[in-house]
Simulated scan of single mutants.
Amino acid sequence: MKRLMLATAALALTAGVASAQTVRLGTEGAYPPYNFINDAGEVDGFEREMGDELCTRAELTCEWVTNEWDSIIPNLVSGNYDVIIAGMSITEERDQVIDFTQGYIPPAASAYAATSADIDVKTGVIAAQAATIQAGYVAETGATLLEFATPDETVAAVRNGEADAVFADKDYLVPIVEESGGELVWAGEDVQLGGGVGLGIRESDAELRDKLDAAIASMKEDGTLNAMIVKWFGEGAAVWGEEDEGGK
C-alpha cells in the first residue's frame, strides 16, 4: 500500500529489544483510517486497534510514539522506537535497510483523485506524499510530481488548483472522495503497488519480529484481522484468504 522510502539510514543498533519490558510502536498519526490522532490527543485508527491486540497476543507491554513520515525509518534504526506501524508497504528498497513482519494488510490499489475525471494523470501535475511508493511511481510516468510532507497537503494541493490530481492509497482517498460532495472524483486507472503492509523492525531484532509475526498469524487464523480490516476500511476492502495465510 503505502510508500517508498529511499532515505539513507544509520546502522542498526546491535542490542535487540525483544527482551525489553516496553516495546515502542512508532506511527505517523496522520493517515486515516490507518492511523490518526483523535480528539483526546491519542493515536487511533485501524493500526492502533490492531497494534494493541498484537501486543496482547505477543505478551508485550507497548507504548505509542508518533513520528513524521519522512524520517520514520531512520528514527527506527537509531532506536527512537522499536516497531514501525504506519501503513508502510513492504518493498525491496526498504527491506535493504530494515526487516519486515509478514503483511497485515494484503496488497491493495493506489488511485488518483481530481476535480475532474478527464485529467490526464500521465502528463498532468500530480501530488503525492514524499518518500512514498506513490511518489516513486509518479516520477516514472512522465507526469510532473509535486511532493508534500503530509497526506493532507496532497489533497489540499488539488483543491486549491496547485495540482491536477493526488495519487495515494485508495483506502486513504475513498472517504475523502465520498465526503467531498462531488468536489473530488476518481481519475485514471487504479494502480497496484507494493507487497502489502507490514510492521517495520530493526534487522537486529529477530526475536521481536518472530513474536509479532506469530501474533499476526494468529489474528489471520481466527478471523480477527479480517474483521478489523472490514471495520476500518469497509466491506469492499481486500482481506486475507486461506491462500494468503502466513505469507510475507
Rank of each mutant, 00 (worst) to 15 (best):
S204Y: 01
V239H: 04
E28V: 15
A165Y: 03
D210A: 13
V83A: 01
A15M: 05
N75M: 09
N80L: 11
A227C: 10
G79E: 02
E93Y: 04
V121K: 05
A128R: 08
E178P: 08
M1G: 04
A237F: 14
E92W: 07
D39W: 11
V177E: 00
E235R: 13
L4Q: 10
A215T: 13
G198R: 08
A109Q: 00
V83Y: 02
E245N: 12
A215F: 13
T123D: 05
S218G: 09
N226H: 06
D44C: 14
V185H: 08
L173S: 02
D164M: 09
A217L: 15
F148P: 01
V43Q: 06
S110P: 01
A187Y: 10
A109G: 01
T22H: 04
A130H: 07
V43M: 08
G236H: 14
L212T: 01
V23Q: 03
I105W: 05
V177S: 00
A163P: 04
D120W: 04
D95A: 15
T224C: 10
Y172T: 06
I201D: 01
L60K: 05
A214Q: 14
L193C: 03
P74E: 00
S89G: 15
A30D: 06
G161R: 10
T144C: 15
V230K: 03
K170Y: 01
Y81Q: 01
V97K: 14
A149H: 14
E59C: 07
L25W: 14
E203V: 08
A163H: 08
Y81T: 02
A149D: 14
M228R: 01
V158W: 04
E189G: 03
A157F: 08
L76K: 06
M50D: 02
E162C: 05
T132W: 12
D205T: 09
D82G: 05
D152F: 15
V239M: 11
K211A: 07
G194P: 00
P33V: 07
P106V: 03
L4I: 11
L199C: 11
A127E: 00
A139S: 07
L60D: 04
E49I: 09
E140L: 12
L6T: 12
S218E: 12
L184K: 10
E42H: 14
V177L: 03
A131D: 11
E178K: 05
A127M: 05
S71R: 02
M219G: 11
D205M: 09
V174S: 05
Y112L: 09
A206D: 03
A157V: 06
L146Y: 15
Q134Y: 09
G181N: 07
S89D: 04
A135S: 04
V174N: 04
W186V: 08
G247I: 12
V77F: 05
Q134A: 05
E92T: 07
Y31W: 13
A9K: 09
E243D: 07
V125W: 11
G182I: 11
R159H: 04
A117L: 13
A109D: 02
